[in-house]
């Protein structure tokens, strides 16, 4: 990663222009050329320094809903339960964590009622308790990653 890559990551996490030539407008502020900015973003995506580039949509504002869901999965059943959970297209992320609550996934659904349904279905299929932990309040959420 060079200085320009850092500059892109530190300054372009938000406020990418909505204009006719947005790359040219953004590039001007970074003192680089339009084509260089496009090429840089492309490379950062290809080498996975960026997970994506573009508008970040909020499912919960699209009439849908989000929730964080946790499970306590016995070690010997972990693979089997992972397959059951991941098979749902509503499961956006799923992480294994070092705790008795060892499986944590995010459900993103277009219909709010679907959150509860998916939880019930997973509980039924696995015979395990499913802990639905939707956010009740959000105190802060902002990317402050710097490099």
């Amino acid at each position: 990663m060079d200085e320009i890559d850092r500059l892109i990551i530190n300054t372009l996490q938000s406020d990418f222009p909505v204009s006719s030539h947005p790359y040219a407008d953004a590039a001007k502020k970074l003192n680089i050329s339009e084509s260089e900015l496009i090429k840089k973003i492309q490379t950062l995506l290809e080498n996975k320094t960026l997970t994506r580039f573009g508008p970040l949509y909020r499912a919960d504002r699209l009439g849908g809903d989000f929730s964080l869901v946790a499970m306590q999965v016995p070690e010997e059943r972990f693979k089997e339960v992972t397959d059951i959970v991941n098979a749902y297209s509503e499961v956006a992320h799923n992480y294994q964590r070092d705790n008795a609550f060892n499986m944590w996934f995010v459900l993103a659904t277009e219909i709010p009622e679907r959150i509860g349904e998916v939880c019930d279905e997973i509980a039924q299929q696995t015979g395990l308790k499913v802990y639905n932990m939707p956010k009740l309040e959000e105190y802060f959420i902002e990317l402050k990653l710097t490099v």
Partner: peptide, 20 residues
């Protein structure tokens, strides 16, 4: 959609792991 907060932001989304 930005004004209605349907779009949270437009920009690059860094990969935490790749950034160290």
């Amino acid at each position: 959609m930005q004004e209605k907060d349907i779009i949270r932001r437009i920009g690059v989304v860094p990969n935490h792991y790749a950034l160290g």
